[in-house]
Design a protein around this nucleic acid. Structure first.
Lengths: 320, 320
DNA sequence: GTCACTCATGAAAGATATTTTCGTTTCGGT
DNA sequence: ACCGAAACGAAAATATCTTTCATGAGTGAC
């Protein structure tokens, strides 16, 4: 599946089909949302039923669930596989666990969407709840193995490029800023042409990170492809683990895909999700190179202190 | 943890004590103890294994559990029956649920700070937890009156400037991008000098937003001051409602201040908090000018669609 | 428009797992 | 030592899950 002939003997290995996928306990709803777009109609029906009523589905046999969703046993099993389980039996087990959890966890909350006439207080509550949900989903769905590998690559990189366009570019810049703070060299070109120009300069040992929710943003895929072919280690942060961008990614980090609506563009929760991933990368890297990161962090901290209250020292300026 | 406090007038039916025969969800261990005396030796071994390691047993088949306990399948089934389940299959399901429950109950242990030697999985959990906490705090602490006023000002503004430096600049850009998407004119100058230059152009009816966690970042205060003096409506998004920046702010929106540490710079949670505020502003504004925002949103969505997969339509790209 | 092709889909065969049956073993009582 | 009842497990019977395979719908090429 990898273009450009199988390079890269060891390391990341095949990620997209998720063979080392750790069965998700609570991350199921998130996983369903993430994978739904890549599902066929029948599978979506099954996934929907499963996500909608875990408890009820856990009580059903393959045949029962197939009948309920108007599909066949084969489809049910296929769906279970896609969700990362060896078979329906294991999905069912996870389902039972999930049901028990949400029974005790008292989960049901503000599920309703934001309406045009919602009072401002409701908007705040709903947005906060949604973003919290997104964080939980993302954390639950993150493949720590891939994350670990990505961290290792970043920590050892000579230089790192982070590609992102639009809202994702802000996330890319966020990562870049953080890395610079711990003494690592990183760039987040905002211009697609610049990105490609940058990518050409990469070589083995360097790292390229692509951040795209859809996974099919050409302007982001292109530089990643170039970096990939140049021999750099490539990382994709995307909400679609089966999208084009993963072709050129050694490591794929999946962000969660929350439902969106007119007043709540997808960009909102995908951004939250991406930022969490980026934070994880950063903290992971900081841990790895702690010896050199700590002084660098302190230094940049110190340097910034002078900018605070420097122009006008009006109110009390404090420093704990 | 269980709702043993007898409320529930009708409907629910008595489940917790399970006197008749409804399979016990979490009360399994207790049931094992109660029923143990009436069990035969082999059955006791099975029951013991089950009560001792629900998670482990849930992963086993009848045969597996029989082998583990040195008994036969028949005995396992008999034990399951004695415990109140129709058969082993259902016991197993309950076991999975129990395992999930006690696993999630173990969660709130992540209150501790991130350590240098934390495994990557812990880092993910802790970061997610912290950011969730930050969101909750921010939502709780937001003054909806101030927020409403800010929204009104933004919705009516001829143009809006958003000032932010460093990490806060990313938040500023985020707000700017969103506003542009619904047809409002906004800028987020990254350069302090540019910011001031911009601010000078503002007049009554325009809006200036300053985003600064510390509230004492001179480079951000300065343009806000200029805008303020020019007669523009000014909004401050800060974690310090008593800091210098609020001097020149008509409306102050307070972000939450979470504890930070070496591996978790303040920038991380303040960013999360700021983004939530910014999202609230955006949604609030979008509601207010819905008539014109909706088409604009649709238009920008449409325009972007072409950029996805445009350069290389490699993998299957689908759209339901 | 037609053709070839791919892919989703379900029916049914095949493989496992669970439940039942039934004969053997164990143990207590006399 | 002998009898009877209960416990127990081996294996048959059944249910459940998984795989295979043929079919048809949709899609792109010509």
């Amino acid at each position: 599946m990898n273009a450009s002939g199988g390079r890269r003997a060891a390391g990341g290995g095949s990620a997209p089909p998720a063979p080392p996928a750790p069965p998700a306990p609570a991350a199921l709803a998130a996983k369903v949302r993430t994978l739904a777009p890549s599902m066929t109609r029948s599978m979506q029906r099954v996934a929907e039923a499963v996500a909608g009523d875990p408890a009820g589905c856990a009580a059903l046999t393959v045949t029962g669930l197939a009948e309920l969703t108007g599909t066949s046993e084969a489809t049910v099993v296929r769906t279970a596989r896609l969700l990362g389980y060896p078979g329906y039996r294991d999905l069912r087990l996870a389902l039972a666990g999930l049901a028990a959890q949400q029974q005790s966890g008292r989960a049901p909350a503000i599920t309703t969407d934001i309406a045009v006439d919602d009072p401002i207080a409701d908007v705040v509550a709903k947005l906060a709840y949604d973003e919290q949900q997104t964080l939980a989903d993302t954390a639950a769905g993150l493949d720590t193995v891939q994350l670990g590998a990505a961290v290792a690559a970043l920590a050892a990189a000579r230089r790192t490029d982070v590609y992102g366009i639009g809202a994702s570019n802000l996330v890319a810049q966020d990562l870049t800023q953080k890395m610079l703070r711990i003494g690592l060299i990183a760039h987040a070109p905002g211009d697609p042409h610049l990105a490609v120009t940058n990518a050409v300069q990469l070589q083995a040992g360097d790292v390229a990170v692509a951040i795209t929710h859809s996974g099919s943003t050409g302007d982001v895929i292109e530089p990643l492809r170039v970096a990939f072919e140049r021999g750099a280690t490539t990382i994709a942060v995307t909400g679609r683990p089966d999208s084009s961008v993963t072709q050129y990614a050694d490591h794929v980090l999946t962000t969660s895909t929350a439902r969106e609506s007119e007043l709540r563009p997808a960009a909102m929760s995908s951004r939250t999700s991406q930022l969490l991933v980026v934070d994880c990368l950063f903290v992971g890297v900081a841990q790895r190179i702690y010896e050199s990161a700590a002084p660098a962090l302190a230094a940049s901290y110190e340097a910034l202190a002078h900018r605070h209250g420097a122009l006008r020292g009006v109110a009390g300026d404090r420093r704990a």
